[in-house]
Structure formats: structure tokens, C-alpha cells
Design a protein around this nucleic acid. Structure first.
Lengths: 169, 169
DNA sequence: CTGTTTGTTCGGCTCATTCCGAACAACCAG
DNA sequence: CTGGTTGTTCGGAATGAGCCGAACAAACAG
């Protein structure tokens, strides 16, 4: 079993995931659940996650739902038709980033953009300064939206290649 | 004064900023303070922000510090040597995004990356599966880091151009 | 049908965040 | 030095998030 180096290394990485989770607006428990699943040999059920993480069953239930919505883990309505549900990690983190952007950032930008248009249509032609400020904001949002849409259609390596090619005129 | 359309439009946009602030992990008050500054004709002091936003002086003090750290607003140690401090909005939101990425995301990636290396060096050669998982994670992080470093060196329009040029082979 | 296992939902508890008012420190005017 | 203004800091109340245990629903085994 080669000592416990694998265990401590695993634990260090999982603790790091807990901290990272907080940076990105998730809970510690979410980071740990993802970490345990990331190192697990096979998909785990809720009782197994309770055993591995030490969290209560209800916590695991809520956290797994949250992570599934975000796309960081997947439910496998595991064969056999049993009620048992198993979770496995999404290994390709770029998928996750893409989903988060599309679910939250794109959504926020869409609603904000609509508000800006509605406010603009309500304005007289004489409110030049207010109109100019809102139009500037709308232009910025449009730029961001097109950039995000473009970026979300490509892999990380493709994006790196694109920028590097651009830098070499 | 062209009715109150400018006022209501302004208010709508500021309320939208409050909601957006929450999406990006800031408080409502932060969104409103930025919004008021964004529409103000000139930099505002703390008492003026108290008057315009309705928040308490202490709240404004804390929120302005927070927003200044993030880079969403700037302090102008306004001329005259007076104690009065004035704040103005950072209009170029791409600057803000860039700063946030460099301060938080890049930092998180750096520490995580170091943890991964430390964990790897602690591992025996026999822990192949654990080692493989951590190495995969490290590779993903390296990719993200190079992409972010590249992206942060360019403007939004440059990035859009780069990707569009890449798409046209 | 009864008992067991799995997963969700509900009501609390605790802790962090947000905001306020009050006290305090710094600066200027007279 | 005294009074007024500006900005920061401190304690406290209200709100929300994370987590737990218990109750509940659903599926299967016998």
C-alpha cells in the first residue's frame, strides 16, 4: 500500500479544493465532496459520501444537487434500476467554467442588457448625458457578450492558439 | 428638465446594478454606490454619497474601501489638500475584470498549483492512480493559467478579433 | 405486509455578513 | 483653543448561509 503518502497527498489536494470552492462562491462541503469524488475509483452514492466526508446525509443531499446543477458532478442513475444514485466528477473543468458562464454570467448580462434597452426607450432625446452613460454601458455589455459567446465555442487550447496567432500579427 | 424620465431610467439601471453586484459576490450597497457614482456629473464625497444613497456614513466608508480595492471606483485625493476625499467610477469595466482575475483567480490558481506540486513530490512512484489524477489537475491549471495570462494582456476587441481570425483558419 | 435502505425535506442551531448608530480621530475656520 | 466637518473604527441588531438531526417518502427484500 506504499505507506500513507497517497492518503496525505489526497487530503492536501482536497483541502485545497475546499479553499478554491470558497473563492468561487461555493461552500467548503462542496469542495470536499467534489474532491472525494475526484479521487474515488468509481462513482459514489450518498451513504458512501457521508462515510467519506463526515458530513450529514442531508448536507450531502443538498450539496450534490447544487454541484449537479453547476455541472461539477454528474448523477448516474446507476444500472439495475435501484433507487441508489451514484455521482461521478466532471473531469473536464473547462466544461464547468463554460456552463457557469452560460448559466449565470450570460443570464445576468441578458437581463441587464434588457433593462438598459428598456431604460433607453423611456428616455427623452434631451437627456443626453444620462442617455450617453447608459449607451456606453450597453456597448460594453455587448462587447462582453460577443467575446463570451465566441470563447465558449472553443477549447482552452484553441483559445490559446488563437491569441498566440494574433500576437504574431 | 424634461420630466423625470432621466431619473426613473437612472434608478432602473442602478437597481439593475444592485442585482448584478449580488451575482458577482458583492453587496447591494456596493452596486448602488457604484451606480450613483457612474451617473454623477463629478466625483462625490462620502457625505454626498450618504445623501444620494441613503446609507449610513459607516456603510459608505466600508463599501468605498471595498470597491476601491476591487478597482471599481477610484479615490481622488482631490486638490486643495483638504481632507475631503472624492470617488469616481472606473468606466472601463474590462480593467475591473482584469484586476479581479489577477487578484483573486490568478492568486487562487497560484496557491493551488503550488499545493499540487508539493503533493506530487510527496508521492511514491507506486501511487500511480493518485499521481495521475493530481497530474491531470495540474495540467488543467497550467492551461488555464496560460490562457488567462494571455487574455489579460489584450483588450476585449483584440480578443474578439483574435478568435474570429482563428475561426477563419 | 413488514422491515431495511436510500434519498429528500423540514425545523432548528451557529456563524458570517450587512448595515446601522455612536464614539473616535483628523483636519480646517474662526 | 473651540466648534464644525469629514472620514474611520467599534459594538450590536437583523438577515442569510451552512450544517445537522429528525421526520418523511420511495423503492426493494424477505
Amino acid at each position: 500500500m506504499s505507506g500513507d503518502e497517497a492518503g496525505t497527498a489526497r487530503e492536501e489536494v482536497i483541502e485545497s479544493m475546499e479553499r478554491s470552492a470558497e473563492v468561487y462562491g461555493l461552500s467548503r462541503s462542496a469542495g470536499r465532496v467534489y474532491g472525494v469524488l475526484y479521487f474515488a475509483a468509481e462513482p459514489l452514492s450518498i451513504p458512501e459520501l457521508v462515510e467519506e466526508t463526515g458530513y450529514a446525509k442531508s448536507t450531502i443531499s443538498n450539496v450534490t444537487r447544487r454541484l449537479t446543477r453547476i455541472g461539477l458532478i454528474r448523477r448516474r442513475s446507476s444500472g439495475g434500476g435501484g433507487r441508489r444514485v451514484r455521482f461521478e466528477p466532471e473531469a473536464d473543468l473547462w466544461f464547468v467554467v463554460r456552463d457557469v458562464f452560460q448559466q449565470h454570467v450570460a443570464r445576468e448580462m441578458g437581463t441587464t442588457r434588457r433593462t438598459l434597452d428598456r431604460s433607453l426607450s423611456r428616455l427623452d432625446d434631451e437627456d443626453t448625458t444620462t442617455r450617453a452613460r447608459i449607451e456606453a454601458l450597453a456597448a460594453t455589455y455587448d462587447e462582453f457578450e460577443t467575446l463570451l459567446e465566441l470563447a465558449m465555442d472553443h477549447s482552452v487550447t484553441e483559445l490559446i492558439d488563437a491569441i498566440e496567432a494574433y500576437e504574431d500579427d
